[in-house]
Simulated scan of single mutants.
Amino acid sequence: MSKPIRVIITGTTGMVGEGVMHQCLQNPAVEAVLIINRKSSGYSHPKLKEIVHADFYNLLPVEDELVGYNACYFCLGISSVGVSKDDYYKTTYLLTMVVAQTLAALNPDMTFCYVSGAGTDSKEKGTGWAAVKGKTENDLMKLPFKQVFAFRPGFIKPIKGLTKTHNFYKYINWLFPVGRKLFPAGFITLQELAAAMVQVTLQGYNKQVIAGKDIITLSKSV
């Protein structure tokens, strides 16, 4: 029998992180959820613990609270639109690596799931967002975790009723059933993403880069 999942989730003040947290709190395979935010999320649940910590580039003051977890679902990220290349690199690559390196040292039995994106360039060509994401994926996979997976979703359908959904989804959600029918690999639900993360944590997978089609397949296995 697989060990219960004790997971650290980042980015829960955003749509993806909030949705993954919501699903994990409902999943019986998940025993405990720790979220780390710069400000309080306002969430309360018997499984949930929250650390409010302003500086993600220095986790030393909270390291003792990060021990004893066997999964991390890293959902923290920013869009490259309207952001300088330096700021995007700092947030997307440097911040991610600081968190991951800390967790790898504290919890070597951890499965690390990184939310990347469709179109990421594993060859790291150029200086655009796709190359930065590719470098982040590649360097995460060199860390001494038990497992590392890079999830590359395309369009993600949000979970109805949650509070962090971007306003523009009100106008584009109609695309989902059409896109799912015509190009199913590019259109997933947030429930499927969370379920796939739980599944790879429990059972592993034969690929480290998890595309949309894999996410759907994994979610059905839970």
Score class of each variant (00 low, 15 high):
residue 215 I to L: 06
residue 120 T to E: 03
residue 177 P to M: 03
residue 106 L to W: 11
residue 212 G to W: 09
residue 182 L to K: 09
residue 53 H to F: 11
residue 64 D to N: 12
residue 48 L to S: 02
residue 175 L to C: 13
residue 21 M to Y: 07
residue 139 D to T: 11
residue 94 L to C: 15
residue 74 F to M: 03
residue 151 F to H: 01
residue 45 H to T: 05
residue 15 M to H: 04
residue 173 N to F: 13
residue 191 Q to N: 08
residue 99 V to S: 03
residue 135 K to S: 02
residue 182 L to R: 08
residue 184 P to T: 03
residue 128 G to R: 02
residue 208 Q to A: 01
residue 124 E to M: 14
residue 41 S to N: 06
residue 63 E to W: 00
residue 133 K to N: 04
residue 218 L to Q: 02
residue 221 S to L: 09
residue 51 I to L: 14
residue 173 N to M: 11
residue 217 T to D: 08
residue 103 L to I: 14
residue 162 L to A: 00
residue 119 G to W: 03
residue 95 L to G: 13
residue 158 P to G: 01
residue 57 Y to G: 11
residue 94 L to I: 15
residue 70 N to T: 10
residue 63 E to Y: 00
residue 25 L to A: 06
residue 205 Y to K: 01
residue 96 T to E: 01
residue 160 K to Q: 12
residue 168 F to A: 02
residue 221 S to I: 09
residue 216 I to V: 06
residue 191 Q to F: 12
residue 195 A to L: 15
residue 151 F to Y: 11
residue 184 P to S: 01
residue 189 T to E: 06
residue 30 V to R: 02
residue 20 V to C: 04
residue 13 T to S: 10
residue 80 S to V: 13
residue 69 Y to E: 05
residue 112 F to C: 04
residue 34 L to T: 10
residue 9 I to L: 08
residue 34 L to N: 03
residue 218 L to S: 02
residue 135 K to M: 09
residue 196 A to V: 06
residue 214 D to Y: 05
residue 72 C to P: 14
residue 160 K to E: 14
residue 63 E to G: 02
residue 3 K to H: 15
residue 134 G to E: 05
residue 158 P to R: 03
residue 135 K to V: 01
residue 13 T to Y: 05
residue 81 V to Q: 12
residue 185 A to I: 04
residue 195 A to M: 13
residue 96 T to L: 05
residue 140 L to T: 06
residue 1 M to G: 12
residue 135 K to G: 01
residue 46 P to L: 04
residue 58 N to C: 08
residue 209 V to K: 00
residue 51 I to E: 04
residue 61 P to V: 02
residue 214 D to P: 11
residue 136 T to A: 01
residue 19 G to W: 07
residue 47 K to R: 09
residue 214 D to R: 01
residue 199 Q to Y: 15
residue 68 G to E: 06
residue 120 T to V: 15
residue 100 A to K: 10
residue 194 A to P: 09
residue 50 E to P: 08
residue 219 S to Q: 00
residue 160 K to H: 09
residue 95 L to N: 11
residue 2 S to L: 12
residue 29 A to V: 11
residue 141 M to L: 00
residue 50 E to A: 02
residue 96 T to S: 12
residue 108 P to F: 10
residue 103 L to P: 14
residue 55 D to N: 15
residue 49 K to A: 11
residue 3 K to F: 15
residue 190 L to P: 14
residue 102 T to Q: 07
residue 169 Y to C: 00
residue 71 A to H: 00
residue 117 G to A: 09
residue 153 P to V: 07
residue 106 L to F: 13
residue 38 R to L: 06
residue 14 G to T: 08
residue 82 G to Y: 14
residue 170 K to M: 08
